[in-house]
């Protein structure tokens, strides 16, 4: 406190230096607080992708008629922020059986995320004329998931399937909405 006892007579240089130090110090403090704040707020941008296969058991293979589509619910473990719930309905997928093979499509319309519906064709037991249609913005897809009409930027997202123990298993994933490429969400 020695300098407090002297009357102040700072030269222009000293006053300038002290001004710079005061402003610089205050700015440094702002950055020191701002940096962790920015890291904290933007942490969702750096969340680790879940990645890896996520096989979920659905219906018995025998419950799926030939040349037909069926919507099945995906039940699994959900991580909601800090909570982990078991046996929660995570979403649904369309299963299509064609010539013996089972194909799965995400029921989420790649346009803006509405749930797509199935419209059967004129003749029962045949996929001819059948299609998937979005109830929101008139996007429609054929039974291979290819886009037929409407504003959707890509076809329906196909999911991997396998048959094990007589049941259909689906590798359930979510994808970015509204873009041309099929990009998985974390």
């Amino acid at each position: 406190m020695a300098d407090d006892d002297r009357p102040e007579d700072p030269g222009v240089g000293r006053r300038g230096l002290v001004s710079w130090l005061a402003c610089g110090g205050a700015a440094a403090l702002g950055v020191a607080l701002g940096a962790p704040a920015v890291v904290f707020v933007t942490s969702p941008l750096r969340d680790a992708k879940t990645g890896g296969a996520r096989w979920i058991k659905t219906i018995p293979e025998s419950a799926l008629a030939a040349n037909a589509a069926r919507k099945v619910t995906i039940v699994g473990e959900e991580r909601d922020a800090w909570t982990v719930r078991k046996d929660v309905e995570l979403g649904s997928v369309w299963l299509v059986r064609r010539q013996g093979a089972v194909v799965a499509f995400s029921a989420v319309c790649p346009h803006l995320g509405c749930a797509v519906a199935h419209e059967a064709g004129p003749s029962p037991g045949s996929l001819d004329g059948a299609r998937f249609a979005c109830p929101c913005h008139t996007s429609a897809f054929d039974m291979d998931g290819k886009r037929r009409e409407g504003p959707a930027p890509r076809g329906l997202d196909e999911l991997a399937t396998k048959i094990e123990g007589g049941f259909v298993w689906v590798d359930f994933r979510r994808f970015r909405i509204g873009v041309t490429e099929k990009a998985e969400l974390g």
Binding site: P10, R15, V18, L21, A22, G25, A26, A28
Partner: peptide
């Protein structure tokens, strides 16, 4: 207040 007191304040804040 600026700059002499502020500089003291800033040092203490640091």
């Amino acid at each position: 207040f600026f700059p002499r007191q502020l500089w003291k304040d800033v040092q203490a804040a640091i």
